[in-house]
Lab assay of single mutants.
Amino acid sequence: KLATQLLVDLAEGCHTHHFNSLLDIIEKVMARSLSPPPELEERDVAAYSASLEDVKTAVLGLLVILQTKLYTLPASHATRVYEMLVSHIQLHYKHSYTLPIASSIRLQAFDFLLLLRADSLHRLGLPNKDGVVRFSPYCVCDYMEPERGSEKKTSGPLSPPTGPPGPAPAGPAVRLGSVPYSLLFRVLLQCLKQESDWKVLKLVLGRLPESLRYKVLIFTSPCSVDQLCSALCSMLSGPKTLERLRGAPEGFSRTDLHLAVVPVLTALISYHNYLDKTKQREMVYCLEQGLIHRCASQCVVALSICSVEMPDIIIKALPVLVVKLTHISATASMAVPLLEFLSTLARLPHLYRNFAAEQYASVFAISLPYTNPSKFNQYIVCLAHHVIAMWFIRCRLPFRKDFVPFITKGLRSNVLLSFDDTPEKDSFRARSTSLNERPKSLRIARPPKQGLNNSPPVKEFKESSAAEAFRCRSISVSEHVVRSRIQTSLTSASLGSADENSVAQADDSLKN
């Protein structure tokens, strides 16, 4: 292990032709098999893994070397290190390495390699500790012929580059190093199909959405987006994914797998022009299946994007999809995704031109529960009313008269009656009930004795009459309010007539 670390330190600071010789020695160290011998017992696995620490030291050392060589000349050094790393990870899946030390190597290698970024000039870069990406002036992410390196360097940008540029090249004859992302992409596909350690798979799935944002990485080298989509959909639809995973937390289920895969599918929607129609349908189907899991909100957001990006695919699945959405409970976490999906859909009339009455009724059935102001915040309630109004205007004229009683009944049950079921009123009724029952229970537990009763009969009569009056008032709060309003209006009217009579009498006395 110490000798391997010494080789790594020497290679990191070497800029001459001896660098390749040092890498040859490190490569021989990495070539050791990580498969346990067949006769190895389970209690000896930890000791055997400790004997392979030099392999881990070599791989982690290459990660440090690549981070240094990416910004220094010659660029061919970075290319050689990158290829060695990718080849080593491929061996893991070729020979099915399952030892804990092998999983640790893959975890740290993917953690580093999935941080690679590219700008519009195809320059590769890595983020620093502050998250700012520094791009290399010597390494690009696409394949290029050595003699055409300078031509590639002087080509115009596709868009303004992001991030601070690296140091300027030493001279005009500098050759750019090619670090094609397709090599890593193929290893990522192998990981999605064969990885057995949940920690490694979770890391890859968590980092892929951010990497897919940099389309330069994908399009400048032959990366098959179709295969990526197929691998992701197979993970969700195939039963073998959960069987092969180990190291998963207790209670791990298909729902947890959906939570990890759906963000990658959402990021892949922007590549729909490069996906086969069959793959697009598979993607939409997987998102529909996710509606029954805890990732339902993410799936609804993804389907909203699909309705804009892939209208030809979503239009066929939309009638059944809208009916499925009615089975989702009206909760605060689902309110905004569902209502925004319906609001977006209302502005795309070509998608729902074939809707029948059942689909329009489903839209109103989804939106009406969110009009309850005692359960949802003001934004959700306003958005629900907006969706109902928009869809009522957009639905066909023959359907409107049939939906009017349905909508008014839903609004009455969710908006008007919600004020009668407020917690304050319920607590008031509970308190009044307890007050009504309390005197009775006290009389049963403690019967009054005439000799020891010091309270006069008049006081008892007053208290009983007050309790009886309170019971009468607490029967119905709404009736009490109505009666008080009527009494107030009658009182004001009587006072007004009394004032008029007094004024008339005063005038008569003055005349006399």
Rank of each mutant, 00 (worst) to 15 (best):
A50Q: 10
S51D: 09
E53N: 05
T57N: 05
L60R: 14
L60Y: 08
G61F: 00
G61H: 01
V64I: 07
L66M: 10
T68F: 03
L70I: 08
S76K: 09
S76R: 08
R80Y: 02
R80V: 04
R80P: 00
V81N: 00
E83P: 01
E83G: 07
M84P: 00
M84T: 06
H88V: 01
H88L: 00
Q90S: 13
H92Q: 03
Y93M: 00
H95V: 05
S96K: 09
S96L: 07
T98I: 07
T98R: 10
L99V: 05
P100N: 05
I101N: 01
I101A: 04
A102G: 03
A102V: 01
S103V: 09
S103F: 02
S104Y: 09
L115E: 12
L115T: 09
L116D: 01
A118K: 02
A118V: 06
A118G: 04
S120F: 09
L121R: 07
H122V: 01
L124G: 02
G125N: 01
L126H: 05
L126I: 13
L126S: 05
P127F: 03
K129P: 08
D130L: 07
V132Q: 12
V132I: 12
V133N: 05
R134D: 05
R134N: 05
R134A: 08
R134Q: 08
S136D: 01
C141R: 02
C141T: 06
C141V: 06
D142E: 07
D142H: 05
Y143I: 12
M144L: 11
M144G: 08
E145D: 12
E145Q: 10
E147Y: 11
E147R: 11
S150C: 12
K152T: 13
K153Y: 12
G156H: 10
G156E: 09
L158E: 13
S159H: 09
S159R: 09
P160M: 07
P160C: 13
P161C: 12
P161T: 10
P161W: 13
T162Y: 11
A173G: 10
R175S: 11
L176C: 10
G177C: 08
G177R: 05
S178W: 04
V179W: 04
S182Q: 04
R186P: 06
C191G: 02
C191T: 04
L192E: 00
K193M: 12
E195L: 00
S196Y: 10
D197T: 03
V200M: 01
L201R: 00
L201S: 01
V204A: 02
L205E: 00
G206E: 13
R207C: 04
R207A: 05
E210Q: 08
S211G: 05
L212E: 01
L212K: 00
Y214E: 05
Y214N: 11
K215S: 04
V216L: 05
L217V: 03
F219A: 10
S221K: 02
S221F: 01
P222R: 06
S224Q: 04
D226H: 04
D226P: 06
Q227I: 04
L228W: 01
L228A: 01
C229W: 03
C233T: 11
S234H: 09
S237A: 12
K240Y: 11
L245I: 11
G247P: 05
A248I: 10
A248R: 10
A248E: 05
A248T: 11
P249E: 10
E250I: 09
G251M: 05
G251L: 04
G251F: 04
